[in-house]
Design a binder for these strands. Structure first.
Length: 424
RNA sequence: GGAGAAAUGGCAGAGCGGUCUAAUGCGGCAGUCUUGAAAACUGUUGACUGUUAAAGGUCCGGGGGUUCGAAUCCCUCUUUCUCCGCCA
């Protein structure tokens, strides 16, 4: 959520930046917010004055009672008259205005960094880095959904029987490969200075709101109605919410956490080749990295995180490219996002396996995650996160790219984790 | 799931209707002393809002109520602890 103060003082800049994100109603909403804000501040002033007066009288009555001057106390009581009713009226007006302002503000996406390229669709994203040659496959090469069946690694139909489409059952070496990847990603994260955490995989409303999934993406999450909990769509939600209502010390920076969790996404409305095989699932595994940093450092941190994820892909020997997302393709809360895509050789397409974003103060403002700066002033920290990495599409690319006539080769770094070097 | 108790500042803990702008201790920070450190002593030490700065306003788990006045009384929700039951 954007900071009200910032909007108040930089209206034109906010509008200019929101335009990069192609946010249509910017002018209308921002103007409405500022109008309500001005009104609220006026009423607040009147309300505060009234309360000050009432406090004064109450104090006097206290002193009179103590001195045993009952009559004078009664006279003072009479002075309070309709103050109480007025106070109540002010409170109601203020609450109404605040609610209305809030309802408007949560609709406004984050202002993108000026580094964000203009554009509306994924085609407008900017390729900033490309690594590795696309492999040439043998003549009988097939997509991963055929390989998983051929080698009995993943049973999609069995998952349909147990839960539904999009909930695969990993078996044998397929399951072991999953476990290997999770351990590999976590070990790398720890080596990079991240603290490993195992958070809850359901969250309450407040947490969903804190990182921006609510109210914006209500329909994308599985909801446990009876307890009013949401299955997490990413570890970002519980891990970032660790810092909700926390005031950090400057010496705590950088706060680095990583965690493995299953992730659940309803993905309503998806269809076709995008959801074939492992391309898009309702439940999948992911290791997430999250950092809370000093505002001046957040863009350096973003680059560091991008490099880190790129390093993982290099070690896995997967051809990949890095995209800087354009205004129209960025997520709601992000100020700058890099997507990492691996080349899936049998499908002949790029698959997104990581998204690394700087949220600046967008999340921390909702979370009230702050720190005391050198001058002793509290200010909002910056939050960032990235997938490092999401498993299914990595598995898809590994299987497809490394298939030979004799089986599927496991990349060197994973062999110690898998306990085998070939799936055959 | 049943019965009982509790929730106060970074922590411990007092306050149970009227200077509470919340005692006291610990911790943190600054100073004195010291070559330096420790100890001791002195001072300081929350968040939000508001203002050029102040004044003022709000906050004692959340929400609501009683009252001229609520940390303190009432209702409600949540959480924690103790005992019982069930259980990986």
């Amino acid at each position: 959520m954007l900071q009200l103060n910032y909007i108040r003082e930089n209206k034109d800049e906010v509008l200019k930046r929101l335009a990069i994100k192609n946010f249509k109603d910017a002018e209308t909403i921002i103007t409405a917010v500022l109008a309500k804000d001005a009104e609220r501040r006026n009423i607040q002033k009147d309300s505060d004055n009234l309360k000050a007066e009432a406090n004064q009288i109450a104090k006097q009555i206290g002193e009179l009672m103590k001195a045993g001057k009952k009559d004078e106390a009664e006279q003072a009581k009479a002075k309070t008259g309709d103050m109480k009713a007025k106070e109540k009226q002010f409170d109601e007006q203020l609450k109404k205005l605040e609610d209305e302002m809030h309802a408007l503000l949560v609709q406004v996406p984050n202002t993108p960094s000026f580094k964000v390229p203009n554009g509306k669709t994924p085609e407008d994203n900017e390729v900033v880095f490309e690594h590795g040659a696309k492999p040439t496959l043998h003549a009988k090469a097939v997509p991963h959904w055929d390989l998983t069946t051929k080698y009995d690694l993943i049973d999609f139909e069995l998952g349909v029987k147990i839960a539904g489409a999009g909930f695969p059952v990993y078996k044998g070496k397929g399951a072991r490969l999953q476990r290997a990847l999770i351990n590999y990603f976590l070990d790398k994260g720890i080596a990079q200075g991240y603290q490993e955490v195992q958070p809850p995989i359901v969250v309450n409303e407040e947490s969903g709101y804190g990182t921006g999934q609510l109210p914006d993406k209500e329909g994308q999450m599985y909801h446990v109605g009876i307890d009013n909990l949401y299955l997490i769509p990413t570890a970002e939600v519980p891990v970032t919410n660790i810092y909700r209502d926390v005031i950090l010390k400057e010496s705590d920076f950088p706060v680095k956490n990583c965690g493995y969790t299953p992730c659940f996404r309803r993905e309503a409305g998806s269809y076709g080749k995008d959801v074939r095989g492992l391309n898009r699932l309702h439940q999948f595994d992911k290791v997430e990295i999250v950092q809370i940093v000093h505002p001046e450092k957040s863009y350096d941190t973003l680059e560091e995180m991008r490099e880190y994820v790129a390093g993982l892909l290099k070690e896995l020997e997967l051809p990949f490219r890095t995209l800087k997302l354009c205004g129209g393709d960025m997520s709601f809360g992000s100020a700058l996002t890099y997507d990492m895509e691996v080349w899936s050789a049998a499908q002949q397409r790029w698959l997104e396996v990581s998204s690394v974003s700087n949220f600046e103060t967008f999340q921390t403002n909702r979370l009230k995650c702050r720190f005391k700066d050198a001058n002793g002033k509290t200010q909002l920290a910056h939050s960032l996160n990235g997938s490092a990495l999401a498993l299914p599409r990595i598995v898809a690319a590994l299987l497809e790219n490394n298939q030979t006539e004799n089986g599927i080769k496991i990349p060197k770094v994973l062999v110690p984790y898998c306990g085998f070097d070939m799936i055959s």
